[in-house]
Design a protein around this nucleic acid. Structure first.
Length: 361
DNA sequence: CGAATTTGACCTGCGC
DNA sequence: GCGCAGGTCAAATTCG
């Protein structure tokens, strides 16, 4: 199913006035404005502007068409990989090399316990399923170790209130804490979280306060969610977070007027690194902004994350800043495979709708 | 009472 | 092989 060949997705923005109309207009112009040199100049300017606009729109149209083609191609490729993967699953090709640690541990403590192993195997399979499905985007035939290396790792820093000692980051996902450890290079304990919304979701999160500034919480996300966001960030029952890419988009989109935080795209592959720690100067002013992701119960995370701004509101209202924001959003969106997939799905939905209406496939 | 969190023990990888 | 450090497990505890 090649979408690009099915529908003409290009936006026909070309301006083609009717010849007759053109002729009439010309006559009218000639009869009415002969001798009015000033008006003639105006008309010429206007025509030039229109021509320029036309060229600009045409080139934009061309670019959009190209982008859409690329997105459709990527969607098709992904879809093929998914089909291939599902076929493999149906054939019962299950590699049992992963997850040996748990079984080994249980064998040591209770070597005769075979019933428990069944449940554990189930967990292991689920975990591998989701992990490989996320890595399918990059390659469908990588070694497990390589998969692990290629797992998306994102680092998100955010400022919290100094009095807040918890390591809770609310960002729309449901997390279960499974460990805490004091590391050598940082006296602040590091908390380990696992996504608890979907049983097979491989995403993990490490949260630790910055050693330089303990009001900054650094969250490290590993892997990709294989399920949609559980809820709006503020409605999460406990510790909520998201992959950085999502947070990236959400934060920017939700706080267009308050995102002076630096956003950086990690150059090493598809990893998106979002650094929300910006120079702290005008906090109190920006704190007044009521961000939609603010948690009423815990006064931490996103609310204070989107504070910052070295130059305050004036800076945010400047066209260069707005332009920068738009560019950042565009970059994030175009680099996010999930966005591409969603776009492709939306297009395919439209196609289906269209075909249902016209009764053809 | 069930779910979430805490925390000490254990496992694993890595450098020496 | 040994020790260290990071990561994970799971029983105990806390919380709603």
């Amino acid at each position: 199913m090649e979408f690009t060949s099915l529908v003409d997705t290009s936006l026909d923005l070309s301006f083609r006035p009717l010849p007759v109309l053109d002729k009439v207009l010309k006559q009218e112009v000639q009869s009415n404005f002969t001798g009015l040199s000033r008006d003639n100049m105006l008309v010429k300017d206007e025509a030039g502007d229109l021509l320029e606009e036309l060229n600009r729109v045409s080139s934009e149209n061309k670019k959009l068409t190209e982008m859409l083609t690329v997105v459709c191609e990527n969607y098709n490729a992904l879809r093929n990989q998914l089909m291939e993967y599902m076929n493999n699953q149906n054939n019962g090709v299950v590699d049992d090399s992963a997850g040996s640690r748990k079984r080994k541990a249980e064998n040591i403590s209770n070597p005769n316990n075979n019933n428990n192993n069944k449940n554990n195997n189930l967990d292991i399979v689920c975990g591998r399923l989701s992990e490989s499905s996320s890595s399918d985007e990059e390659s469908c035939c990588k070694k497990p170790r390589e998969e692990h290396i290629k797992t998306k790792v994102s680092v998100v820093s955010m400022r919290t209130e100094a009095s807040d000692t918890s390591l809770i980051v609310k960002d729309g996902y449901q997390w279960r804490k499974y460990g805490q450890k004091v590391t050598r290079d940082n006296p602040c304990p590091r908390a380990y979280f696992r996504c608890s919304f979907a049983p097979g979701c491989p995403v993990k999160k490490k949260v630790q306060r910055s050693i330089e500034d303990q009001s900054i919480v650094v969250a490290t996300y590993e892997g990709e969610h294989n399920h949609p966001r559980t809820s709006k960030p503020e409605s999460g029952p406990s510790t909520n977070t998201s992959t950085a890419s999502r947070l990236n988009v959400t934060t920017i989109a939700g706080t267009t007027t308050s995102v002076p935080c630096s956003t950086t795209l990690n150059s090493s592959g598809p990893t998106i690194t979002l650094d929300l720690t910006a120079p702290k100067t005008v906090e109190k002013r920006d704190m007044k902004m009521n961000h939609s992701t603010t948690s009423p119960t815990s006064g931490n995370s996103i609310r204070t994350t989107t504070t910052t701004s070295a130059a305050g509101g004036e800076y945010q209202n400047r066209p260069e800043f707005q332009q920068f924001l738009i560019e950042q959003m565009a970059t994030s969106l175009t680099k996010d495979p999930s966005f591409k997939a969603a776009l492709a799905a939306a297009i395919s939905g439209k196609i289906l709708q269209h075909n249902n209406q016209t009764g053809r496939w």
